[in-house]
Design a protein around this nucleic acid. Sequence first.
DNA 1: TATATATTGCGAAAAAGTCGCAATATTATA
DNA 2: TATAATATTGCGACTTTTTCGCAATATATA
Lengths: 143, 143
Amino acid sequence: MHQDFESILKSSGQSVTKPRRAVFDALTRADSPLKNGEIAKLTPSIDRASVYRTLELFAKLGITTTTIRGWTPFTELAEPFKPHHHHMICERCGVVEEIESDTLEDMLTILASRHHFTLRSHTVELSGVCASCSKNLPQPTSL
Amino acid sequence: MHQDFESILKSSGQSVTKPRRAVFDALTRADSPLKNGEIAKLTPSIDRASVYRTLELFAKLGITTTTIRGWTPFTELAEPFKPHHHHMICERCGVVEEIESDTLEDMLTILASRHHFTLRSHTVELSGVCASCSKNLPQPTSL
DNA sequence: TATATATTGCGAAAAAGTCGCAATATTATA
DNA sequence: TATAATATTGCGACTTTTTCGCAATATATA
Ligand SMILES: [Mn+2]
Ligand SMILES: [Mn+2]
Ligand SMILES: [Zn+2]
Ligand SMILES: [Zn+2]
C-alpha cells in the first residue's frame, strides 16, 4: 500500500516527503471521510498550509476523492487505496451505507462515451430514508 | 414557479420572507451553480447570515442541491425548479456537459431499494476528458 | 388591527483557506 | 557518500468563509 502510494508520487515527478506521508497515513487510519481541519489535527507536526497543498496534490493525482456534507468538504482515499464504493445516506438518522454495483459502473462508462468522454472518475451519492427510519418515523422529521 | 416555491415554504410551516425570495430569485436567474458568496453579492440588501440560514433551509427542504469544486461549495436549484440533470466535467479544460438518462435514474432507484432505502435524491458527477481535449492534448497535463 | 412568534440584521468572532518567501529536505549526480 | 540543483516546507500575515447570540422587526393568524 505505502509502496503504491510512493510510486504514484515518484512516477509523476513528485517528491516523497514527511507531510505527504503523514497525510496519507492519517487518511489510511481513518474509517470515514475527514474534514481538512481534522486531517490537520491528526498531523500536528505538519503546517496547515502544507496539509492543504498535499491534499490538492492528492486530488490531482487521484489519490483521494472529496465530497461535501453541509458546506464542508470531506476527503477520503480513492482506489486502489480503498475499495471502490458509493454512499447511501439516510436523511433522518444520518446512517451511511456503502453501495456497490458493477452494472452501475458500466453504465456510467457508457454514458460518458456517448458524450465522447473518456471517464476517469466519478461520484455517486444517494440520499433517502433507511429501513428502520421509515418504520419508526412514518412522518418526516419536522423542521 | 414562484408559486411552487412559496407553497413549499408554507406547507412546511415556514414563512415567506424577503431574504428567501431574494435568494430564490438569484438562483433562478443564474445559469450555473453559484458560490455562497456569489449568492450573497447578488442579494446586497440581505445580510450574509440570513443568506446562509436561507441556503441551509433550502437544502433541508430540497429546494437546492450543493456540489463541490476544489474546496468550494456551489449551489443550484433542484427539481422541480430546474430540470433534473447531472454534470460531466472535463478535467483538462473544465467544460461542463449535462447528462441525462432515464435508465440511470431507474437503476439508482433499484439500487436503493435493494438496500431497503426509499430514494429521495441523489448526485452523480462524472469527471473525464472531453472529445476536443483528447484530440488536442494526447498527453496528460503535466503537474 | 392586535398578538404571538418566527425570522432578520447586526456585530463580533471563529474557522477555513491562501500566499510570498526564506529555510530546509529531497533528489539526482558525481 | 558528498555536493549541487531544485522541489517542498514552515512560517506569518492575511483574506475569505462561516457561525452565533441577541435585540429589533416582519410575518402569520385570528
Ligand atoms: Mn463508482
Ligand atoms: Mn439523476
Ligand atoms: Zn435512517
Ligand atoms: Zn476538455
